[in-house]
Design a protein around this nucleic acid. Structure first.
Lengths: 236, 236
DNA sequence: CCGGAGCGTTGATGCAGATCAATCGCCACG
DNA sequence: CGTGGCGATTGATCTGCATCAACGCTCCGG
């Protein structure tokens, strides 16, 4: 059973952008939106493409329109930690440092709204509403990061996987996803590197959750059979 | 050998506040500083006191003047993850959610600058410079969080301890600390909960680093003997 | 000067998850 | 309709860190 994720929405103008309600621009009025649109460029990347790489000069900010990205940091010896997945509406570049803090690549095809760093900085300079919006997004990101630290430092493999599934479900719900099936566009290796585990442990844990009747494993996703049990594991 | 940390500085007015250069208020001019001062209250907490607790209503923001705090999240069963240590100049409340996202307690005595949430929000509402300052601090925090995730998810015990020591040294240096000796006001348990380890593993790792000639263990701190080796472990 | 509480260290043992090694299943392609 | 490749699963074994258990040091109060 194949599962698709947020395909088919097409962008026309900022005003009827698919992510208008979620993205940075949610705080702007019509005039501002026009001005912002003039600063933005609309780009696409195919499956697996790297949008930007850790430690290269950060020339752009991005807002995700369609698709999913993995955001990750690499250690010199190749160990990888995925620090998050970016979904439609997410803004990339909050750290605001002159170099990118992490790398981002496309999981499946993605469409992005690209802004020049300087341009957006100038645009925001004297727009408190916009700055407050950025703040709000940064705060949310920080909250997610804090929770992720607890997960990485203090949870068992089973709790990690359950938390991931519940968190992913909630994020998809937040951008309007509905349905029995929870699509997982990222591979097992991505999940492992997100949870600080190995691919084998992730696979075994999925299997265990299925054996215990908590989930059902499908190609490209899962279905949550025992939500209560999963949520308990995720909170515990 | 006992080590003291940032004792003795006394606050008089905002203009000659000990953390004037580092804190939120660094972005403000004299007039604004006066207005901000009228919103702030100056509070102290003794050793071990809890300044605010996770999941209680967030009525205040804080800026640290003196001392060190541990910021942590607890799981229902008591497992603890320390998400960071707050030093003079650090601002608490960036997440901006209506409840505190984590708890904070004093390690040793602390002095804080307290602001009412509503008051500070109103103050900032239409001051882009201030908002940009908040953004800058949030970005820095986010960067720290991302690095901490890599540490928690992908580093060995020895690398964790070395990274912690190097990071701590750099943070203290950033607020003007100098000297051979690196004070560690937090106990082994705090370090363990910061690094996602147990107290025993932390203790053993300290001992190993001392045996290997990388550090010397003192009461209340350490001395870095082989900086290069420690930095290598920390980066690797 | 003595006693004990609290933190830190050290030792012995256990186990969750890593590592090493096939095998499987699903497509894409010839 | 075979075949090769890649991701996922499963199995066997190993190991880094956790856990369980003393013991030591240091400082403080009597």
């Amino acid at each position: 059973m194949k599962v698709s994720l947020l395909e088919g929405s097409r962008w026309q103008t900022c005003a009827d952008c698919a992510v208008r309600g979620f993205a940075v621009c949610a705080a702007l009025d019509k005039t501002e939106l026009w001005e912002l649109a003039s600063l933005s460029r609309h780009i696409q990347h195919e499956q697996g493409a790297t949008v930007f790489a850790q430690a290269t000069v950060a020339t752009s900010f991005f807002s995700v329109l369609e698709g999913v990205l993995r955001l990750y940091k690499l250690l010199p010896d190749g160990r990888r930690q995925i620090i998050g997945f970016a979904l439609p509406g997410d803004f990339l570049g909050l750290a605001g440092s002159p170099q990118y803090e992490f790398s981002a690549d496309a999981i499946g095809a993605v469409t992005l709204c690209q802004f020049s760093r300087a341009g957006l900085a100038r645009f925001g300079e004297d727009r408190p509403r916009f700055l407050r919006r950025i703040n709000e997004l940064a705060g949310r990101e920080l909250t997610r990061a804090n929770e992720h630290m607890v997960l990485l430092g203090r949870r068992s493999a089973e709790e990690k996987v359950a938390s991931f599934l519940i968190g992913w479900r909630d994020r998809l719900a937040g951008i309007g996803h509905v349905g029995e099936v929870l699509p997982l566009p990222m591979g097992r290796l991505d999940i492992a590197d997100y949870l600080g585990l190995t691919i084998e442990t992730v696979s075994r844990t999925f299997t265990k959750l299925e054996r215990d009747g908590v989930i059902r494993i499908l190609t490209g996703g899962i279905s949550l059979l025992d939500t209560a049990r999963a949520e308990a594991l995720s909170a515990a």
